[in-house]
Amino acid sequence: MLKYKNPLMVLVFSAAIFSCPFFLNAYWIDVINNIGLYAILALSLNFIVGYTGLFHMGHAAFFAVGAYTAAVLNTSYSIPILLLLPVSGAAAALFAYLVARPIIHLRGDYLLIVTIAIVEVVRIALVNNVFGLTGGSNGIFGISRPEFFGLTIRRPHEFFYYIWSFLAISVFLFYMLERSRFVRALNYIKNDEVAAEGSGVDVAYYKLIAFVLGAFWAGMVGNIYASKMTLISPESFNFWESVILFVIVILGGSGSIRGVILGAFLIVGLPEIFRQFAGARMLVFGAAMVAMMVFRPQGFLPPLPRKYATHKIKPGDETL
């Protein structure tokens, strides 16, 4: 029984989530959808913060690039929004490559500050209507809904399946990646950058790839977000969005997929439950963040230590 504990828990969790549409009303389904979106975004940020240990607090910028790419191409050239999913991802990835390239050598706090600056510059650029495409502070409206084989996704219940299937695919992909040689190298950089470099890991290159991959995924979420809201404006991509994502990753358990999903439920879901306490809830939220870091700095569900089936390795085998 113990051997199948993890798959069983995943199964129970998935069953619980996918049965939600049968007994929750549209409002709560929408909350669950938001949790799903934040969970995917936080997973993509987890790639940069959790696996690689880079202090990146500007993830909303990549999210924004993806959303705006989708919105501009959809409203100006009426390309179906679903086809733009990879395009949004690629645009965000390209943007990440261009901005991360010159700053990748910065460490710790300096990187943190420069990523904050990037997200603010992106927001200010959007407000000031760069290239005359982004519609200024009003944003872009009239983005079309996604269509699957003639079936238009419109109601929260329909979006639920879209978003959570996307989350399920993301979790599966990230889970597979986690066991790869590539993510092991990222973990090595997180734990000891100098030792990683000494062991032949091209640190700058790997960090850059982490940024680009994380941004690609965030860009795709931007596309889903744009089609869900049908209107986007610069205020949806401000610095606090980045902070929320960052906090989801750290509080949930940086580097752990389970932790990040739990974090999304706690950070996005709990404030909804305590909606009637309007002002005071954010006060408690801030105090809880401090308390959490004082008493459990590794987060709720920190990643499990890696296990290797060493007994299966025979002398003369290639290493893992």
Binding site: S254, M282, G286, M293
Partner: peptide, 20 residues
């Protein structure tokens, strides 16, 4: 603790004070 914990603690304190 880890440097990130201090950053998150500082962000929490910031949220606390501005809402206060």
């Amino acid at each position: 603790a880890d440097r990130l914990s201090a950053v998150v603690s500082a962000l929490g304190a910031s949220i606390f004070f501005s809402n206060l």
